[in-house]
Design a protein around this nucleic acid. Structure first.
Lengths: 232, 232
DNA sequence: GTGTTTTTGGGACATATGTCCTTTTGATGA
DNA sequence: TCATCAAAAGGACATATGTCCCAAAAACAC
């Protein structure tokens, strides 16, 4: 991850994401822009973090690995998600490893600057509050879904949540930046079992694998298998 | 749940929990105090909520039930936890059912009053932000723990997190206000399997059941079984 | 194009765990 | 004290799911 010396670009991102009112002026002048490449580790579990990062371009994944070598993929991050917010608020080391799925850009603000210049600024606090609340909501939703449902239901739900429309056909596009291992780690199953469930769904005509993509063939049946749940 | 007309008591709770600065004065005069009895449902999943409740006395449990009848116990709430904060911020109906484990008291503040009188008040925003962040942290921690570990590890971790010291013996006291069904719903297993794991741990000399309590007999072995995890 | 590494796919086997049901124990109310 | 209900305990059986391993296909680097 390298710093990009480009004040114009920073202001461009602030405008693009409508953050001029969220960040007090004094804070805006202290923002740093960083560029990352695909596969780079942004920060590692257990590490000390001194900045809060606002993702303005690209995609990240958040994961953790247990001592036994099992992995959990907590979520993906898209703009305008934040890295290091909870670590700032809980005054803790990094909780989970953050890795780049694509190349992209982050705006960094030091924790000191945030405390001095923004922690009394209602628009910033409101922004942070809404961000953490959303994160909590999605975590809680996913957690409950995982808790109460089988892998099949979770997978169906996952497909529904990431489906996009191309022409008149729904398909699941994350395959381009997500491999099956990541999906297994996200919905909480082994790679092997995921394969089984995917195979079964193909045989039942619910989905179809073609050209590195998974197409939804029977949307109603998929929704039925999801039991009304959607990962969010 | 019935309202208690006692301004003195409200101010007593504000002092006890050091909230005088968190809540702007105008807001403090609009706080309502409610009393609840053990077993009462404070609010139900899917219901419309108009107030944010601050728990000042007693204990609550938060749970949800799937369409198939499976239950998940998300967490317990103690003073000064909040009910209705995420619903306020996400502008949504109640996500999970809240039920009283003991009798107690709640201070209620209408969403309108919060928006008018406190959503620009930095101390209140900071308080809310720290509360939601903590909630997110514990949810994420529990979720990862559940994801990556067996029921045995989760149960061991649970015992460690609720253990208290009496004399020189560590024991697990939540049994008094928590039944085995709740524990099963919390760590994400069936009641039957929980019984098996508890029985096994008793046979191995890790814990001992006596007088409606579970005593930790071998703290080191328990910590080993928890794999260094603690529910929080 | 070739060689290497990574991702996908699937067989075989084991077991952690859930469902269903029954019995026992303990708590509660009259 | 007795009757009823709820919580705890446990048997029997089934299966969802994980581990381990190997083969095939795809991606990547030179």
């Amino acid at each position: 991850m390298r710093q990009v010396m480009d004040r114009q670009l920073i202001h461009g991102f602030l405008e693009q994401h409508e953050l001029q009112h969220t960040f007090p002026n004094a804070l805006q002048e202290r923002i740093r822009l960083y560029h990352f490449e695909k596969g780079e580790t942004i920060c590692t579990e257990g590490e000390q973090l001194n900045q809060m990062y606002f993702l303005v371009k690209g995609k990240l994944k958040i994961y953790t690995v247990s001592t036994e070598g099992r992995s959990r993929l907590l979520r993906f991050k898209n703009p305008l998600d934040i890295v290091g917010d909870v670590e700032y608020l809980k005054k803790n080391l990094v909780f989970n490893t953050v890795e780049a799925v694509t190349e992209g850009d982050l705006m960094g603000i030091s924790y000191e600057d945030i405390t001095r210049l923004a922690y009394d600024h209602p628009p910033f606090l409101q922004f942070l509050l809404e961000e953490v609340t959303h994160k909590f909501y999605t975590e809680s939703n996913a957690s409950t879904l995982n808790h109460l449902n089988s892998v099949e239901t979770r997978l169906a739900s996952y497909f529904l949540s990431t489906a996009t429309t191309e022409k008149s056909t729904l398909f699941y596009q994350e395959m381009k930046t997500t491999n099956l291992k990541d999906i297994a780690d996200l919905i909480g199953t082994s790679y092997r079992h995921l394969n089984r469930v995917i195979k079964q769904m193909c045989e039942e005509g619910i989905i179809e694998k073609k050209s590195k993509r998974i197409y939804i063939k029977d949307h109603d049946l998929l929704r039925e298998r999801a039991h009304g749940n959607i990962y969010e």
